[in-house]
Amino acid sequence: MKILVFADQKKGKLKKSSFEVLSEAVRLASACGAEVHAALLGSGVKEQAGVLAHYGAKTVHIVDRPELATYINTPFVTAAAAVIEAVKPRVVLFPTSEGIKDYIPALVQKLDGAGITDCCKIKWTGDGVEIERPLMAAKARSTMESSHSLILLTCRAGSFDTNEPNPAAVAEIVEHAATFTDLKQIFKEVLAANTGKISLDEADIVVAAGRGVRDAEGLKLLEELADVLGAALGSTRAVVESGLVSATLQIGQTGKVINPTLYIGCGVSGAVQHTAGMGNSKVIVAINKDSEAPIFNIADYGLVGDLFKVVPLLIEAVKELKKNS
């Protein structure tokens, strides 16, 4: 039996979500005596294959083609299907990204598989898997089962611990051909979004702006904090709606699900629409002058205070810390 993990990468760098999912695949494989394979789709991605071995992949399958340089779903469905048909795994695991969310439905159908998205727990039952996943805006969880012959699961970011890599491990690398015909959609362009320097779903530290930042000046303060921390900037929906930041920075139910080591919410009240996207953060810091804000119910460290007074001092303190280390 084989478990296949599709790794995700961005501009030639594997995303940390790939390692989470690969680590989980290794645990699952030891429970059911399976062999772990990884797959990587893209253009110019071959060099990264070795890293996947460090996290437990015995074989790495590559489709490296210029058609996969920019994302549209048709070629990715074709490439992924080609790998799965060749490897014949029982379970296929994917990290979550807007691209994967986009192409997985067609892939499930094309291969007549069983598809379940956003899994946060995976267990081998003996003849299939049992999974848990959040639903209803993460206010509830469901337990699902599948014993289908081909099971495709996407994994929720931050749900699985990453194993220590073994830099000595090597994998067999197999390149697959795929025929790309009939591109049904035509990709035109990516409209520039004022994305931060560090991508939100990859960041170890996230500084999130809530309604309390009020205006561009408040936002600038948080950008500065993010800069000194080497953090990514995110926001609540209210801040996106006010036009202060682009929708790519939105964290939450309709935005990105993030799982940083440290989340610092500034002027964030903690509405469930937002917490649905950041509740997996390892350490949550909240800065809010309203001592009754619901975010304090989930914050590890809740600072009751005015962000306009606290953040400038915090910036100085972080600068001081970086200078001394």
């Binding site: 961005k10 807007e98 691209g99 986009d102 990709f187 035109k188 520039a192 979004a193 929708a247 790519t248």
Partner: peptide, 14 residues
């Protein structure tokens, strides 16, 4: 216009 990983993607669909 689709919200993708890198920003808003513009895609023409037949």
């Amino acid at each position: 216009r689709r919200q993708g990983d890198e920003g808003v993607e513009v895609i023409h669909m037949p």
